[in-house]
Design a protein around this nucleic acid. Sequence first.
DNA 1: GTCTATACTTGGATAGAC
DNA 2: GTCTATCCAAGTATAGAC
Lengths: 217, 217
Amino acid sequence: MAKSGSPSKVREGGDARSVETRRALTAAAIATLQEDGYAGASARAIAERAGSNQGLVFYHFGSVANLLLAALDAVSSQRLEHYSAAIERTGSLEELVDAATAIFQEDLDAGYVTVLAEMIAGASSTPGLGSEVATRIGPWTDFAQRAIDDALGSSPLASVLPSRDVAYGIVALYLGLEMLSHLDGDRAPALALFAHAKRIACLFSTLSGVSPRTEAT
Amino acid sequence: MAKSGSPSKVREGGDARSVETRRALTAAAIATLQEDGYAGASARAIAERAGSNQGLVFYHFGSVANLLLAALDAVSSQRLEHYSAAIERTGSLEELVDAATAIFQEDLDAGYVTVLAEMIAGASSTPGLGSEVATRIGPWTDFAQRAIDDALGSSPLASVLPSRDVAYGIVALYLGLEMLSHLDGDRAPALALFAHAKRIACLFSTLSGVSPRTEAT
DNA sequence: GTCTATACTTGGATAGAC
DNA sequence: GTCTATCCAAGTATAGAC
């Protein structure tokens, strides 16, 4: 599950040293995307951070873009696993919003979504990268949809607001909030929104608990 | 109103030829950001598109980053003016959503928001660019807030959901939707969301019209 | 004042060393 | 199989031509 569809020309086997080199380069690629963005994620910048020779990027991954995709894969699988665990412990809509808020803060602290945002924006510069990145976003939308379905699958709201569409919007909103928060180094406005969402979620569950006859149950 | 705070070292006066060169470079910068992204927006790439010598970028704008900021300024002022005109003709919440939908499609077609998204993402790579870009997003959030205030200033919803926070969320969502739509070349999911928003807006205005006594008017 | 030719730096990729 | 030394293209910036 950790390595989904690894892009072409990536060396996979090899001895321990090879594995360690790839691990170091992947970690450095993540850090570089977070701190210097896509435009700053050159083979040299990444290799220097990893303490490797820049040529190793091309030997092990074939191209800078492939290394960055491997970095995105690593972040995605790690995050999705964590999200799943966090969501599994939630039952109500409020708990879901609470979990989402906590996750958003974690993501912001650790810069996980920054990696995704930089890859999406950077995809414009590198031919063929767009579809690869798009493929890797699918699981995030799928995850959001599942979370929504679990939280209000039985609610009448589900029939009027298709979870697929809402999930797409949630991913987009999450992405946008991360970019804006990251840009001006102030997460307060985004957190205020999560707080409002919490309040609405409470209101909603109260309403559907108090007067379930709105839908003639 | 068109040129807000032009970044330092940008040549402003000069004869007609100078003005034309700056115009061509700015237009080319916009096109390059849209098609090749921030990482692809080098002085050479932009100048080639403009039919100019790449050295002119540095003569007229001092740096590539300054030229890109000038491009962002041009797009921002142009778009905000257009948004204002479109919003001015709307009265109800439904009409506001309709206008937003039309504008979103225009923006997607012409790649206006792409310019903003690329600049936000690219800001990570260039020291000092972040705050400049952040400054230029303020007007967009201000605009969204005004539109919201105008549409439901008198509604009880306004007191429970501060327009400033909602405006921030709208800008973030708009940004995220643009990035995702642009990435996989499919605007259908985003448009589906706008359609749902329209439906909710209708529902909302119907409710507040039918039972205005919720707030003891 | 405007622009071009040139200097120098950084980046992607590979031929060849180990 | 793994990695380094090296090559050449692309990038920024400016000195000097007009």
